[in-house]
């Protein structure tokens, strides 16, 4: 989850209606689809041929389904087995579509075995992005393409700012800047690196609805400065008030998601020299 784990322990203490559960995942799922659609347009424009494609962090398979028509071999990888079985239920058994569980930082794939690697809003949960880039570079064939979306540093800036008014702990995951991501890609050996950012600002009925949805996203706050104790009722109400003061709109509260879109290639040394 994007916010700390303590929220559920305090929920009875918070005088708040949580609304209906179906609503909670709606905005984030919509964001994933919007970002995935933009990623697909970018990827499919640069993907030539029928080579094998790996989808890192396939989740329930929304993006995997989109890339299926592009290749005769599609690998859907996720670290979580329930995601893979859900994806398989949705997409069904298809010839050339393979599911396996794996970690992007230690890819269980042979070197030079893939023509393209894609990932839609998954790499922000990896603790060592350089390892991810080194591994993806290794398994790509020469000329192969890496194309992904991830969260940038402005993501959830309102929530971070609201917590900063309450205490000095890190309650929200820190995300990388596009400059840092670009540097890591270069370090790993990638060339032809193109990075763009897009800002999405969905609305939530209230701050609790936002927090509950972020909890459901499935990663956790891995920051060093995360608080060890529980979040008290007063703290939670203070952060809600601070958030409302920062980002209230007629429709509720807004949350910023800065999405970084990346395309990069593993070029031959000759191409690299040429520029």
């Amino acid at each position: 989850m994007l916010v700390e784990n303590d929220l559920k322990l305090d929920k009875r203490a918070v005088q708040f209606s949580f609304g209906n559960a179906a609503h909670h995942y709606h905005q984030y799922a919509l964001l994933q689809r919007q970002v995935g659609d933009a990623l697909f347009d970018r990827f499919s424009a640069g993907f030539i041929g029928q080579g094998s494609i790996l989808d890192i962090g396939c989740g329930t398979g929304y993006f995997t389904e989109k890339i299926l028509p592009l290749s005769s071999t599609v690998l859907a990888m996720d670290v979580a087995m329930p995601m893979l079985t859900t994806a398989r239920q949705g997409l069904g058994a298809k010839s050339g579509l393979f599911y396996f569980s794996g970690d992007a930082e230690v890819l269980p794939l042979r070197s030079g075995s893939l023509d393209a690697i894609v990932s839609n809003l998954a790499l922000q949960w990896c603790q060592n992005l350089l390892a991810v880039f080194t591994q993806t570079y290794r398994v790509l064939t020469t000329g192969g393409q890496l194309c992904f979306s991830t969260f940038g540093e402005a993501t959830l800036s309102e929530l971070r700012a609201a917590w900063a008014r309450v205490d000095n702990y890190s309650h929200v995951n820190l995300f990388m800047s596009k400059e840092r991501i670009g540097n890591l890609l270069v370090t790993a050996g990638f060339t032809n690196i193109e990075i763009t950012t897009t800002r999405y600002q969905p609305h939530y009925p209230d701050v609790i609805a936002l927090m509950r949805e972020l909890k459901g996203v499935g990663a956790h706050n891995v920051n060093q400065g995360r608080p060890r104790g529980l979040t008290g009722k007063q703290q939670l109400q203070a952060v809600i008030s601070a958030y409302e003061a920062l980002a209230s709109q007629a429709e509720g509260v807004l949350a910023t998601f800065e999405v970084i879109n990346v395309a990069a290639r593993k070029s031959s040394s000759r191409l690299r020299r040429r520029g």
Binding site: F100, P108, L109, S111
Partner: peptide
Amino acid sequence: SKLLEILACPLCK
């Protein structure tokens, strides 16, 4: 067999 051709040990590849 196609998948077996691509998969490797995550540790030693």
